[in-house]
């Protein structure tokens, strides 16, 4: 089918009509969901199904999240320095000034 009548014309749709969703997979209970990649889909329900086909066919996960890529607010690479570098010279933010007593285990 060369025409594209199946596509939903949702806001943020790509050239072929389907918006992009980011996929997060939880590998097993107790772990966090980790970003795995992205899929195109006409809506969130279908995105979840597409994600299942693409990212969990080999038992990689027990739980999936999808979220519209447009809905993610991300830090900009060009602002990397102002965002992240100041942390390096504020040593008092790192717990390095404590003496750990010898008899404290597992710290």
């Amino acid at each position: 089918m060369s025409d594209d009548t199946t596509a939903a014309h949702a806001p943020g749709a790509n050239a072929q009509g389907w918006p992009l969703f980011e996929v997060f997979v939880r590998a097993k209970r107790g772990l966090s969901h980790v970003h795995a990649g992205s899929v195109h889909a006409p809506d969130a329900t279908m995105a979840l199904r597409n994600a299942r086909d693409l990212y969990t066919r080999r038992q990689e996960g027990v739980s999936l999240w999808v979220v519209r890529s447009d809905d993610i607010t991300a830090s900009s690479p060009t602002e990397r320095d102002s965002f992240f570098d100041p942390a390096a010279d504020k040593v008092y933010r790192h717990p390095t000034f404590y003496d750990v007593p010898e008899d404290v285990e597992y710290l």
């Binding site: 389907w18 195109h40 086909d53 066919r57």
Partner: peptide
């Protein structure tokens, strides 16, 4: 290669 989107290629292939 003939489905409306590559995601649907995958789904039908699966």
């Amino acid at each position: 290669t003939r489905a409306p989107q590559i995601e649907e290629d995958m789904a039908l292939g699966n």
